[in-house]
Design a protein around this nucleic acid. Sequence first.
DNA 1: TAATCGTGGCA
DNA 2: TTGCCAAGATT
Length: 346
Amino acid sequence: MTSEPKRTARTRPEPTLPEGTNIEALHHRINGWFLDQARDLPWRRDECTPWGVMVSEFMLQQTPVKRVLPVWEEWMRRWPTPADLAAEPTSEAVRAWGRLGYPRRAQRLHGAAVAIVEQHGGEVPADYEALLALPGVGSYTAAAISVFAFGLRATVIDTNIRRVHARAVSGKALPSRSLTAAETRLAEALMPADTPTSCLWNAATMELGALVCTAKSPSCQLCPVEDLCAWVAAGKPEADYTPKGQSWHGTDRQVRGAVMAVLRAAHEPVERDLILGASSGADSASGTTSPDLAFPANAPAAVHRPLKALYALSPATEQLQRCYAGLLADSLAREVAQGGTVLVSL
DNA sequence: TAATCGTGGCA
DNA sequence: TTGCCAAGATT
């Protein structure tokens, strides 16, 4: 089939690499810096399995390395293979996720383990498309696993890499709000042709963004490519937008987090009314009064503290109802009817 | 495309 | 102390 290339002067794509980009020097300097300065992380060691890499990638989605380390170690000890995790109920994955945040990642990682057992003989696939088909695996994670676990040549694009490219090559303070086609083309154009070198480049660029070319106050004096950086050369212009923060206080998310803490801590189903706070009265423990919620004196010790925190929130009732519905929709909780009482558990 | 989804370290 | 924001995915 033939289609007219409707290319006008207005839509003609700009050159992928800005003129003057010294790609060879970028490769050599950033890769050299990485070999010398990279952190010794357990999922980077030779003895780490593809499954270990995969677990780390899930945990590292929007969560700092420092908080991931202890949880990753525990997961590897408890579930050294996908089959080990797949044999457990999803609720155990959510509990073991602890306070890493975004608990749906635990749910999806468990689902991915099940899919690996059922469709890939229990072995993490190396192929990008096969990885992409797994729950919780998007373009970044699929590329990261195929590169970091299997040494394949794929273009990894995460927030760190985007920022390094934006500054060093494009001369901007920050990458665009969301990943653009132009950014993807640029990242692909910057990839070394040689496969081992390309793997190093992916890891090195990410590490540079994480340790030196940071979002808030980059340490340009420590950067191996400061003299090549387009952003530095341009006088470090300000970003053309201000990223909007993530709301938390007084939002559904805050209440939902408290509900999750209750469910994680409880090793038996919790009464629904306990979570919803449907009863009314005073908080006998603190003496403070909530108009819609009461702190139940008979709450199990395991849920006492998080519930108290939950009840301290205001306004509460409508939010709790909404958040609880969200929990169920996410299948992070299930309801159990027992003796006429509706219980909730992971 | 843009909104939404948790949590806590750190400046 | 308050606000930023961190190896994204999904809808």
